[in-house]
Design a protein around this nucleic acid. Structure first.
Length: 598
RNA sequence: GGCCCCGUGGUGUAGCGGACUAACAUGCCACCCUGUCACGGUGGAGAUCGGGGGUUCGAAUCCCCCCGGGGUCGCCA
């Protein structure tokens, strides 16, 4: 090794010891005769003092040093003179008196600051990712991610799971996201596909008698990116045999609780994780991934509204619609402009409009509320009693603003769910350092495609229907609930899984319902159906987004911050400039010719 | 594919039709400084405003197209 110690590990216990360090110049402070260098390596920063009276040669070299120069320094760990200790630095009690210094490699002035955590345009960061990753924040994220993955491996190993790798070159199947394709040289006109997830492979491992499998699996989906979506991402993929739903949920509750306790001791997870049915989640939060760091639950006001003389309410009730709302605490003073903004949000989601109801302008008990203190288009059609009843149901007090939507139940829920999220964000209602996990269970097995009317899987086609709902497959498929569960944390979908179908006849029935022809089933899933006929055990599993979980733990806004080399929004790599053209020879070898696009 | 935001010295911002000969901070370069730690001081270099076209007497500023980055709807079993 070129160094005997790391910069960050040194403290007063090392005083008097001669050490050799190597790292990057974080900062130089030149006092003319005396020069200080903050030397940085992965473990931290330590101050090096260059005194010409100790070594004139060293002092001369120190004069040449600039930020990000790579240097090697030898010297004695020394107590700083009394009064000059730096409490902001972990190593601030001591410094290195340089006796020998060597520039291992100079550096250009970096395109952005390495030694300060300031916002830099992300494209530039991605182009110089190797410098971006040198920054303390990104080093911390890399380390956190490593620890999370290490923790998962240890935890699952202790529970009897074994890690098995599955192929990256596999087959394109019709369902799901767009595939990334890899042309075959050996088989003209044929393609591999990169896995969207190892779903079928892990089920085959269950048939193989593995019983408890997991993998830190790279997955690929050729769809548009988002702050929490990348073309390639990493899942904790897991599957077990001979289990029931609670076995998976309990396992994950234990895994993620301990993970948070280990990675973020200051912000523990609430346990046990609340378990909500899909129907409840939609009714109360308007989404299947509610952020439970704050309340602000949606309340049903239909019965009260039905009593009123407000024509909008009456007509919606007559058509079988719902009137629901949430309370925006302290927002009675919202301006017309602010309310218009909220109105726009819900209209974009298909709601007719937002009915707002400002409850006075001062705080206090609802007992003091009078009709003329209520600002709302609906006010004159409602009695004071009706208004108070609505307010109480939404947990409102004086000074709050009720946000009410009337219409089709699904639209009302989703729009209010969006408003709930928006208000939670604006009012900063989410408690910091809190990890609010929840399981969502009893999803519908199927959803209907709006355009075609065709049934599609809510999760994927291998999810088992609940036993008591199986007869409904033939009559009312929309009522069939699946043995599917999601895990949500702070409003992000972190994991999803299900108990699987493990008999070929039920799997065939589902495929048929999903509109696959016998031909397609045989071609794409024949191997799986055949496997089920060779003693497939009951099994189920789950997959968790590692990137998203680490993002939440790191307090970051995008998963790019916890991926070493992420793609840009347009799915390009800004360091390598990938994707890139290839030579005519390469294409010919792969039996490919490029289409002439318009 | 749609909608929205951003692009000004190396970096981060200000300027949003004429006073811009483009400002500020920081970084960079030089010199001074022996206890600083976001060291300090003095001086200096550095952008024709992402690219192209247009409107105008005049464009960083208004309009159109393109490129790049980001957010989002669709999409993501």
């Amino acid at each position: 090794m070129l160094k005997s110690h790391s910069c960050g590990e040194l403290n007063k216990k090392y005083a008097g010891k001669k050490v050799t360090l190597a790292g990057w110049v974080d900062r130089r402070r030149d006092h003319g005769r005396l020069i200080f260098i903050d030397l940085r390596d992965r473990e931290g920063i330590v101050q090096v003092a260059f005194n010409p009276e100790v070594s004139d040669q060293c002092h001369k070299t120190a004069n040449e040093l600039r930020n990000e120069y790579v240097v090697r320094v030898s010297g004695e760990v020394t107590f700083r003179p009394p009064g000059t200790e730096n409490p902001k630095l972990a190593t601030g009690d001591i410094e290195i008196i340089a006796q020998d210094v060597e520039i291992l490699n100079p550096s250009e002035t970096p395109p952005f600051y390495i030694n300060e955590d300031i916002e830099v345009e992300e494209g530039l960061r991605l182009k110089y990712r190797y410098l971006d990753l040198r920054r303390a924040r990104m080093q911390a994220n890399l380390l956190l991610r490593h620890r999370v993955v290490k923790f998962i491996r240890n935890f699952l190993e202790a529970k009897g799971f074994i890690e098995i790798e599955t192929p990256i070159l596999i087959k394109s199947t019709p369902e799901g996201a767009r595939d990334y394709l890899v042309p075959s040289r050996r088989h003209a006109g044929r393609f591999y596909a990169l896995p969207q997830s190892p779903q079928q492979l892990k089920q085959l491992l269950m048939v193989a008698g593995v019983e408890k499998y997991f993998q830190i699996a790279r997955c690929f989906r050729d769809e548009d990116t988002r702050a929490d979506r990348q073309p390639e991402f990493t899942q904790l993929d897991l599957e077990m045999s001979f289990i029931e739903q609670d076995d998976i949920l309990d396992l994950f509750e234990g895994l993620f609780t301990s993970m948070v306790e280990t990675a973020k001791p200051e912000g523990p997870a609430i346990k046990p994780f609340p378990r909500l049915t899909y129907a409840d989640a939609m009714e109360r939060y308007g989404t299947d991934k509610p952020d439970l760091r704050f309340g602000l639950e949606i309340g049903d006001l239909t019965d009260i509204a039905a009593q009123s003389d407000f024509s909008i309410f009456r007509s919606v009730v007559d058509k079988g619609g719902k009137i629901k709302g949430i309370c925006a605490p302290g927002c009675a003073t919202y301006t017309r402009k602010q309310l218009d903004e909220l109105n726009r949000v819900v209209r974009e989601l298909g709601a007719e409009g937002l009915i707002t109801m400002a409850l006075g302008t001062t705080t206090g008990s609802l007992d003091n509320l009078t009709l003329d203190m209520v600002r709302s288009v609906a006010a004159k059609f409602l009695s004071l009693g009706q208004i108070k009843e609505m307010a109480e149901r939404l947990g409102a007090e004086m000074g709050d603003q009720l946000l009410i939507i009337a219409g089709k139940p699904e639209i009302v829920n989703v729009a209010l769910g969006e408003l709930r999220g928006e208000m939670g964000h604006r009012l900063k209602l989410a408690k910091p350092n809190l990890f609010a996990f929840t399981f969502i269970v009893n999803f519908p097995l199927l959803k209907r495609d709006e355009a075609t009317g065709q049934w599609g899987p809510m999760h994927h086609p291998f999810t088992a229907p609940r036993d008591e709902d199986v007869p409904l497959l033939d009559t009312t498929p929309e009522k069939v609930r699946g043995k599917h569960y999601d895990m949500v944390c702070n409003g992000y979908e972190i994991a999803g899984g299900s108990l699987r179908i493990y008999t070929s006849h039920l799997q065939r029935k589902i495929f048929k319902l999903l509109g696959y022809s016998d031909e397609e089933v045989k071609e794409n899933f024949g191997h799986l159906l055949e496997a089920f006929d060779y003693g497939a055990p009951p099994h189920g599993g789950v997959a968790a987004g590692i990137d998203r979980m680490v993002m939440i733990l790191a307090g970051e806004e995008t998963i790019r911050e916890v991926i070493a080399f992420p793609k840009s929004q347009t799915a390009t790599d800004l360091i390598f400039n990938a994707p890139s053209p290839v030579t005519e020879e390469q294409l010919a070898e792969l039996h490919l010719r490029l289409r002439e696009e318009l």
